[in-house]
Amino acid sequence: MKFLFVLRQTFNNLWRERTPVLATILTIFIALTILIALFELSWVLYNQLYELKRNLVVEVYLKPSVPADEAEQVREKLKAYRTIERIRYISKATAADIFEEEFGENIMDILDENPLPTSFEIRLKSSFNHPEYLSVFKKQVEAMPEVDEVHYRHSVIEKLENVTEAVVMAGIFILIILVLAMNLLIRNTIKLSVYARQRQIMIMKILGSGNLLIRMPFILEGAFEGLVGGIFSAAGLIVAHRFLASTFPLLNFPARVYQLLWINTVILGIVIGLLTSAASTGHFINKVYSKK
């Protein structure tokens, strides 16, 4: 009987305050959708960054005067670095083969000689593929007398890292604003519901009702708004993925991540609704009761 009473009161509240309730649901839906979009964008950027770092090759070019046996000594020196995962030696001849593979012409036919230098292709362990270490590594290796130049595609990594960082920072900023907006709207809806029912709250108090029974319909109201907002957002996510995944293959998340994403969207909606309404209900009920 108590449970039915609470449910009935909850849905009465929702129906009576339907306009602010709809506004709250809409805000939660928009906020969660933006949140997911930011999460997906960060996910894609991090994946790209990870792939880029995993495939990052540091090329160490030796001076043209360095003979092949000295190159072997350089290789031994490089091997001393524990941060290196793999070293590949590329002789002048191999470099000419690679040139031919990539450009379809033999460099000897074009220039009558092979100007390509002897080099090493180095792959660092993934945890050392960050700009700070790469620049230190470059300096150290370039200091070797046999080495002419060290080269890697640092600018792409740095740019992508900056973009990812900016997206995450913007995401956190937007998240704070959105959570505040959701909080304010849910509080406002709860406030309207509490004030619309202040007489009933007062009567129930006089009849000896505990606080929980009085608060529960309002708390459930917040949870319901969060649930519906979350469901709309998850539905939006599913629909968007169905249309966008074929055009943007990067959005093809693993099925488990995708499932977790939309389930968590709904859970997040409920949690936000529940916590905000639970926090504000007591405040407004006490205000109403002390005002009488």
């Binding site: 108590k2 007489r199 009567i203 129930m204 006089i206 009849l207 000896g208 505990g210 029974l213």
Partner: peptide
């Protein structure tokens, strides 16, 4: 101090529901 939009039955039953 009745809840006007509730039925008579619901008003009287409120203390027991509580």
């Amino acid at each position: 101090k009745l809840i006007e939009n509730m039925s008579v039955f619901d008003n009287v039953s409120l203390p027991l529901v509580i």
